[in-house]
Amino acid sequence: MATATIIDDGSASGSPRSATIGETSTKSGADERRAGWWFSAPFLVLYLAFLVGPAIYGVVMSFSNATTLRPGLGSAAGWANYREVFASSEFWNSMGHTLWFTVLTTPPLVILAFVFAILADRLRHGRGLARFIFFAPYVLPVTSVTLIFTFLYAGEIGLIPTIFTVLGLEPPNLLGETSWAFISVAVLTVWWTIGFNFVVFLAGLQEVPRDVYEAAAVDGAKPGRTLWSVVLPLLRPTIVLVVMLQILASLQVFNQMYLMTGGGPGTSTRPVMEFIYDSGFSDARAGFAAAATMVYFFAVLVISVIWYLLRRPARKGAGG
């Protein structure tokens, strides 16, 4: 139910209602609108004060030599910050790390969540228990999760290196070597956040009417065929939503990277969010960090728009 509402953007449910009001009385319609603004006012005030305002201030800041060490914006910088961002290999490396993390985490988080949801949906008994088991890690705070996985990964004393040693193998340097560090954090992220996608998929699967399955069975479709030709098309809006949310979530990686590797070894796993944090806070270069933020924001915006354009046919298909 929840997924359907988000996908349809309210266009289906919103328009008929407003039409009815318009017919009954124009005055009450205006009243309604005015009341609507009043009811939205608390939200709008907060939205303007804490989102739109700071965002605009951030744009202005990106053209200045602002620092967290002095009040105000400091001297004007023109495009210097942007030139430095575009020329900074550290920035583009960190963008690459974020992208690589997204590539590493999105497929397993979508595919595994889907597979687990299909399996859980087939359960006759204990579906609630399965849902709980998969969702439970998602509830844990990031600090607890990273602590657990640090104990698993840590060199010399961790569980996984110990298993390697017991088997007579050379244990990999799971957090101290770049390629392993990415995989280690990706595995943590999959374990930690798969529950959310799983629950969304499960909800989507339960939306599929039982009689569709029955009809497919009566027509003699095998389970694989039912899944491919019946369930997948019906689940398409949910899949589109999960992939989009997952890409956006992975592009925003910061916490688990920061806590597990600190972007290390060196800056070789540092995600772009940490680059911005380091520039803005550790180095106190707020103007430069704001410029980096704007470039990053633009990149995420482009990805979102491309995805939006790609999924438009899907929406038409679902709506039609």
Binding site: T150, A154, G155, E156, I157, L175, G176
Partner: peptide, 13 residues
Amino acid sequence: MPGTVDGAGVTSL
């Protein structure tokens, strides 16, 4: 000396 040990490992060793 070990070459791949972290803070917790140091305390433990």
